[in-house]
Amino acid sequence: MIRFLVKRVLLTVPTFVALIFLVFVAIRLVPGDPVEVRVGEHGIAPERLALLRHELGLDLPVWRQFLGYVWQLAHGDFGRSLSTSNPVLGEFLTLFPATLELAACAMFIAVLVGIPLGVFAAVKRGSVFDQGLMGLSVTGYSMPIFWWGLLLIMLLAERWHLVPVGGRLDLIRFDYDAPTGFMLIDSLLSDEPGAFLDALRHLALPAFVLGTIPLAVIARMTRSSMLEVLSEDYVRTARAKGLSPFRVVGLHALRNALIPVVTVIGLQTGTLLAGAVLTETIFSWPGVGKWLIDAISRRDYPSLQGGIILISALVILVNLGVDLLYGAINPRILHGR
């Protein structure tokens, strides 16, 4: 078990090196550097431009910039933002709880709704429910997030006033400290009546929009995985034991069907964080997604690089966790290694 863990962790090192390199190069392929963007259309004297570039180290060859950045990272230093001069790590950590809260709730909805729907569709295969659900899931999967989000804002927020249009909290009504950065937790800690409900109302729509694609994928995956498992001999054995259908399907079949579903959940975390960028922009959600978009338009190299690397690290970690989960779900996998 420990050997397996060490092996998996060591395997992530080359992934990280490749990742840093890709991010570093890709950003520099975008036309215009931070200085040009800041100077604007009017331009300044070429000598002044050269001086500014020199100050930021942008006049060095790219490979030297890269080595310098890796050296810096190796010392745990993500650099400072070019637009605010604050440490990148600090800015990221301040905004990240908002994104994590949104993404976690989105995944929570996707798993909690997607798995039961998939199981039910598999049990009732070929029925109207099954066909309807699979049709919906294709729609959900191919729905562009920004459009889906705008659509729901128009309907639920603008027309029916069920939920707020954006933001994390009604800042006019509530004002309290946010020690954890997670609005749901902070609102509970604040003792302000109604704060938790208000936070929940703000969170509901963006979380649902962000969770739509993972929900569709998880439902489909659960269904096909369950269909396969339901025809296995051990499911027949479970039924021959006279167990209730709920136990046969929900325990004996589902536990075996979960492996591919958990894999998909891990992979969807990446999609989710990418989707968070769009969702946060639409719902003016003050998280790292919106922060990254701003960093792109300012060509804020350190913020962009740092943000992407930190998010990727999270995705890699989640998938490592998924690998460990396999063994917990199905012991045969652990012993096979």
Partner: peptide
């Protein structure tokens, strides 16, 4: 029927290796 099946009438199958649930 489920109260009878398993308790009063039991059944074993052709493929013992796949008839037991690998997860438990």
């Amino acid at each position: 029927r489920r109260r009878i099946v398993g308790r009063d009438i039991a059944m074993i199958f052709q493929e013992p290796m796949t008839s037991l649930n690998p997860c438990f």
